[in-house]
Amino acid sequence: MEVRTIKVFTTVDNINLHTQVVDMSMTYGQQFGPTYLDGADVTKIKPHNSHEGKTFYVLPNDDTLRVEAFEYYHTTDPSFLGRYMSALNHTKKWKYPQVNGLTSIKWADNNCYLATALLTLQQIELKFNPPALQDAYYRARAGEAANFCALILAYCNKTVGELGDVRETMSYLFQHANLDSCKRVLNVVCKTCGQQQTTLKGVEAVMYMGTLSYEQFKKGVQIPCTCGKQATKYLVQQESPFVMMSAPPAQYELKHGTFTCASEYTGNYQCGHYKHITSKETLYCIDGALLTKSSEYKGPITDVFYKENSYTTTIK
């Protein structure tokens, strides 16, 4: 009895394709271990004539594949690729409408935090270190965002349907971005203890939790000093293409032309909904596939993004 075979390709990165001759009487799992086709788990399936010449994702289970996976995804987590594939199996079914010149995501599976993050990423200057993220990001900007969303979920250790947080998501993504040249110098002034300067680099240099107003941050924000008295913390120097200011959701007025974009969060910790506000020729609110415009805006804002380049204080 002759062994019926077909020729397929296996890959971990969709760049390096490895030619395989597979036995049609055995499952993919018996031949390769966990195997995925377009995100779908085909591990328990036997090869079919229609699979001839198709590319299958496999887990990096030998040295060659491990090197290829690390170079593309910059992670050695053995569960990463499987999590990416199972997320992709959902995100490829989502709709990605162009809204006001940006790629958004039609609401499904509690994905409003991903839509808000995706919209924000198209408006701030950011370059990702893992080629996987950078490639998928370019495709997302062009309207094909399924891979990018699935990668975000995998890097953030999230599953489809789980509630997510924009600030946490951005923080994970910033860790995989090139923020080497970003720098922030802060000064804390206390009447009792004097003053202390701190220099922050990388992710810490672009994120701040405690106030939404970048102007206020430049002037000074009140913080408790270690001595128990009130101290003032203010920005001395900022070198970065953008800054992200966050605070627990509270009524906040966004003035046209003073910011790049913002995240609105309605609801409580267990259950809520994100919308995205962007400042173009007027203010726009993007909620999944829905767009509304207004000249002014007041609502429960939790993150505001500002364009920056270089700032030095005039406070002496």
Rank of each mutant, 00 (worst) to 15 (best):
residue 307 K to P: 14
residue 156 C to Y: 06
residue 314 T to F: 12
residue 101 G to D: 09
residue 46 K to R: 13
residue 294 S to R: 13
residue 113 Y to V: 03
residue 108 A to E: 11
residue 256 H to I: 14
residue 53 G to N: 09
residue 235 L to C: 05
residue 265 Y to K: 02
residue 223 I to F: 11
residue 177 A to K: 02
residue 29 G to R: 09
residue 238 Q to S: 01
residue 150 A to K: 03
residue 223 I to G: 14
residue 170 M to D: 03
residue 287 D to E: 05
residue 40 A to Q: 14
residue 288 G to A: 09
residue 194 G to Q: 02
residue 78 P to K: 13
residue 174 F to Q: 00
residue 26 M to S: 14
residue 136 A to V: 02
residue 241 P to W: 03
residue 296 E to N: 10
residue 56 F to D: 05
residue 23 D to R: 10
residue 278 T to I: 08
residue 178 N to P: 02
residue 8 V to N: 06
residue 137 Y to N: 02
residue 172 Y to K: 13
residue 102 L to N: 00
residue 80 F to K: 02
residue 105 I to N: 04
residue 143 G to W: 02
residue 233 K to A: 13
residue 170 M to G: 00
residue 136 A to M: 09
residue 23 D to W: 10
residue 282 T to Q: 11
residue 113 Y to C: 13
residue 141 R to K: 15
residue 289 A to M: 09
residue 293 K to F: 10
residue 266 T to C: 09
residue 74 H to Q: 07
residue 97 P to T: 13
residue 189 V to W: 10
residue 221 V to D: 04
residue 293 K to I: 10
residue 181 S to L: 07
residue 302 T to Q: 05
residue 70 F to Y: 13
residue 303 D to K: 09
residue 169 T to Y: 01
residue 169 T to P: 06
residue 33 G to Y: 06
residue 292 T to S: 10
residue 244 M to N: 02
residue 160 V to F: 06
residue 136 A to L: 04
residue 227 C to V: 01
residue 218 K to A: 04
residue 149 C to W: 02
residue 135 D to P: 05
residue 256 H to A: 09
residue 256 H to M: 15
residue 62 D to W: 05
residue 34 P to R: 08
residue 281 E to N: 06
residue 108 A to C: 12
residue 285 C to N: 09
residue 74 H to W: 03
residue 154 A to C: 07
residue 83 R to A: 06
residue 201 K to D: 06
residue 215 E to D: 14
residue 23 D to T: 08
residue 215 E to T: 09
residue 72 Y to Q: 10
residue 48 H to I: 14
residue 273 H to Y: 00
residue 219 K to G: 06
residue 216 Q to S: 10
residue 48 H to M: 13
residue 274 Y to C: 07
residue 12 V to R: 06
residue 79 S to A: 15
residue 299 G to N: 02
residue 117 A to K: 02
residue 303 D to R: 05
residue 184 R to I: 01
residue 112 C to V: 03
residue 187 N to G: 10
residue 6 I to D: 07
residue 82 G to P: 12
residue 105 I to W: 00
residue 32 F to A: 09
residue 210 G to Y: 04
residue 206 V to P: 00
residue 187 N to D: 08
residue 142 A to R: 13
residue 236 V to M: 08
residue 186 L to I: 15
residue 283 L to N: 05
residue 216 Q to E: 14
residue 57 Y to T: 10
